[in-house]
Design a protein around this nucleic acid. Structure first.
Lengths: 344, 344
DNA sequence: TAAATTCCTGCAATCGATTGCAGTTTAAAA
DNA sequence: TTTTAAACTGCAATCGATTGCAGGAATTTA
């Protein structure tokens, strides 16, 4: 690409024989410029195909009108939906998005965060990676005076703005639903317990059992089953037990629920009659498996919008007071489908 | 957020009682600084928690190390995969991504492109929106000396770098496959013909029919059927014909193929025995419907990587010559599944 | 010992837009 | 007609990092 020189406000100023400051003011629609000159300047700017250099503007103004987003994977349904939501809300406010993926690696996450700090983004939105253990890099964001918003997977001890799902409540409802459908031995496929969301989902499961006076059986709880393959593996073990479960709550994702369904189908076990299955996330495919899978919708696009709007709202009263760590909890919705419908 | 002042090179310079230029050189690892001072500077920078202000740096250097991406929707499988691919390749080169979605609207697309120009991105990667008619905004990108790479949905007349799928070849193979499976009356669900990709897919369909000496029947070609709902609607009409088709090639997407499958299932028509179905895109769900759906994989993540690498490659020999409009064509792969397997 | 290199370091301009301050012109009020 | 206010306009500094140029110190070569 040829490095054609771009038109600057100085070019416009020179052509009209006025000061650059007037040009700047006109283009910012300040009312400290004569209406006639303002119009002339705007017209000339258009003629010369002027484009404001946002870099220079941001440097001078000390802000970037940019939000940085860090997620484990851009191309996972939940995250791409959240990003779409953030984009929609941000676009309306004239903000841009810089997107990074951490690939579930703390090391890359740290680099991404640092890049965003260097870029002088106004806000960093993050859902931490699975192997995230310490959070100095996030503290660093705050120390640099950048707003930090965590969503979904949050580091609890960090006092920041947070947008989360009420995972425990959702799991409680899901497992309660299973119990009410008459399932008695309910297994849990759980995710990495260093992530709060998975701890909460387990808590919801335990809560439901307690509520209905059902004993907790360790043998029915399978660790680290958060892919389709691991879900299938765990299911195999569960169904090989002397007393196998009659329902499985795949709390990690719909993918592991899909693994459950495939194993059950392969073994000739009838769903939902002999085995109830509940997933998590409301992936598109849960509607079209046979039977369709009961799952939990997280309102992911809405979550993204909420994150962005939370930021804009905080901006509006930034001078007022210290930032109060605020947590917005979105209640996910249980979507009952065929895989758990035994009665009715 | 408190606007804590960030450490600048001047702070470091003052503390060490040297010139800012030396600090800059040290931090850029120039060899025009004494090794000892360099080490000292780097150490001090770390102590003061210095973060380079990329805005200032970019302004001075006249580049941004940023790639702008414009897609119709971030949260569509194909696009989020491409973006993930671009991110991966860009990250390695130290480039950032600014992501915008056009929502399939030319008006928003224009705004996105202009924002990216203002941001002084080094390169704009775009897959144009469905209602895109004129392309002055893209010409504008080039006029501003910004590299432009189109992918998948490209404006043919614009001489830019392009990364595309060989849609015609893929469609040819898909329809040939249907014919070889013994299907005789093959219908086509086509997409908006102002988009080249859909014209090409239609061309492949026609090509295959011609190749096998099968007459083209207008009544078997359904316009604008590129969502699940429209696909279902079109299918309904097709199957109500006096002589209904025995196969449907949903060239627009797997979603419309899903619509076909649902209508067929509802009408008690057996797939693949009585009706063959082929989709496009290899969405995750095509593997788990029953029957699973034959489709075409576009290697979307790979496509993203290709786009990014094409840019970096062009950068490397930017001074050499004029930019030659280059087109990279990726051959998609037909994935045969149950929905079209009649023999064997 | 003198001349020629090499190595470091600092000065000051630059990237492009913004903005506080001061000065000038014009209009309104007294 | 004089005073006061309002409306424009321009100067120059500023945001933070980079870099060409010049000068000084240290080292090497003659």
């Amino acid at each position: 690409m040829r490095n054609k020189k771009r038109t600057t406000i100085y070019d416009i100023a020179k052509k009209l024989n006025i000061a650059a400051s007037s040009v700047s003011r006109a283009l910012n629609n300040s009312n400290h410029v004569n209406e006639a000159t303002k119009k002339l300047i705007i017209k000339t700017a258009a003629e010369l195909n002027y484009k404001r250099n946002t870099l220079a503007s941001n440097l001078r103004k000390g802000q970037s009108k940019t939000i940085g987003v860090v997620v484990p994977f851009i191309n996972q349904n939940f995250f791409s939906n959240v990003i779409a939501g953030i984009e929609e809300a941000s676009y309306q406010k004239g903000y841009n998005l810089i997107i990074c993926q951490s690939n579930e690696l703390q090391s890359k996450e740290i680099k991404c965060v640092n890049t965003l700090i260097n870029q002088h983004v106004d806000c960093i939105v993050i859902s931490i990676s699975a192997d995230s253990s310490d959070h100095r890099h996030l503290q660093n964001v705050l120390d640099n005076g950048i707003q930090l918003i965590q969503f979904d997977r949050v580091a609890d001890e960090l006092e920041t703005l947070k947008v989360i799902n009420d995972n425990e409540q959702a799991s409680l409802e899901a497992v309660s639903h299973l119990i009410e459908q008459g399932y008695k031995r309910i297994a849990l496929l759980e995710g990495p317990q260093n992530l709060q969301i998975f701890r909460q989902r387990k808590a919801g499961y335990l809560h439901a059992l307690r509520k209905y006076g059902i004993p907790v059986l360790e043998e029915l709880i399978v660790e680290n089953a958060w892919t389709k393959e691991l879900g299938a593996e765990g299911t195999q073990k569960l169904l090989d037990l002397a007393e196998p479960p009659d329902a499985i709550f795949a709390s990690t994702s719909d993918f592991s629920a899909l693994g459950v369904l495939e194993v059950a189908t392969a073994m000739g076990i009838k769903v939902p009659a002999e085995l109830g299955i509940c997933g998590y996330s409301n992936e598109a495919f849960t509607e079209i498996t046979s039977p369709s899978i009961t799952t939990i919708d997280q309102f992911s696009v809405y979550m993204g919008k909420t994150v962005a709007n939370l930021y804009f709202q905080e901006m509006d009263n930034k001078d007022d007071t210290e930032v109060v760590p605020k947590i917005i909890s979105i209640k996910p919705k249980l979507i009952v489908r065929s895989s758990t419908k035994r009665n009715g």
